[in-house]
């Protein structure tokens, strides 16, 4: 008798809980993550670690989101985030060239870092030789203009300008995730740390 009551109570509670949980997956986080991963990889260059690590090392929450995405109709959660427009690819190529030729050595020596909002910043200008400092300042400003345009454009091109902050956040995470050991980045509280 009491067991039946218990089962009944648990069932009722589950029903109440289940009926309360509403998950709206409008923003295709996983697709955006893949797009950002691809974009960032092409700018930073070859990943030293196998790419499977990023996939396998996902937190259960991300996995859950992806499962939900499978369940929820495509119309709700768009299956893809489009970054393959020639214009965005042109910017990506330009950013990759700038990264390899100008920025990378200064990420290596700790002068530059990735900010928490998906941009880059001169953290320690003293580490850049004086002769190069003005050029690096300029490259950082140009790169940030490109970054802002890319985040905005990906959101707008996918029909959701309001996604810009989400796209930016996902990119910010990707830049940091794909950063090489020793590179600097800003953590969630805005403190500079080293990978």
């Amino acid at each position: 008798m009491s067991k039946a009551v218990l089962i009944g109570a648990v069932a009722a509670l589950s029903l109440v809980l289940a009926s309360c949980v509403t998950i709206n997956v409008y923003f295709p986080a996983a697709a955006a993550e893949r797009a950002a991963q691809e974009f960032v990889g092409k700018v930073i260059g070859e990943q030293p670690s196998p790419s499977g690590e990023a996939e396998g090392g996902r937190e259960p929450q991300a996995l859950l989101m992806r499962l939900l995405e499978l369940l929820i109709p495509v119309a709700h959660a768009r299956p893809d985030i489009d970054i393959r427009t020639p214009q965005i690819q042109a910017i990506q190529a330009r950013m990759a060239e700038r990264f390899q030729n100008v920025l990378k050595p200064h990420f290596d020596n700790g002068a530059l870092g990735f900010t928490r909002d998906g941009l880059i910043e001169i953290v320690d200008p003293g580490k850049i030789p004086l002769r190069e400092r003005a050029a690096v300042q300029q490259a950082v400003a140009e790169d940030n203009r490109d970054r802002n345009a890319v985040y905005r454009e990906i959101a707008v091109a996918n029909g959701h300008p309001e996604w810009e902050p989400d796209i930016r956040a996902i990119f910010a995470r990707q830049w940091i995730e794909q950063a090489r050991p020793g590179w600097r980045y800003q953590d969630g509280e805005g403190r500079w740390t080293q990978k």
């Binding site: 001169i122 320690d124 200008p125 003293g126 580490k127 850049i128 004086l130 002769r131 400092r133």
Partner: peptide, 13 residues
Amino acid sequence: MAFDTRDGSAGAI
């Protein structure tokens, strides 16, 4: 003259 600053904010060569 060549000088720099620890914070990199100014310098000359």
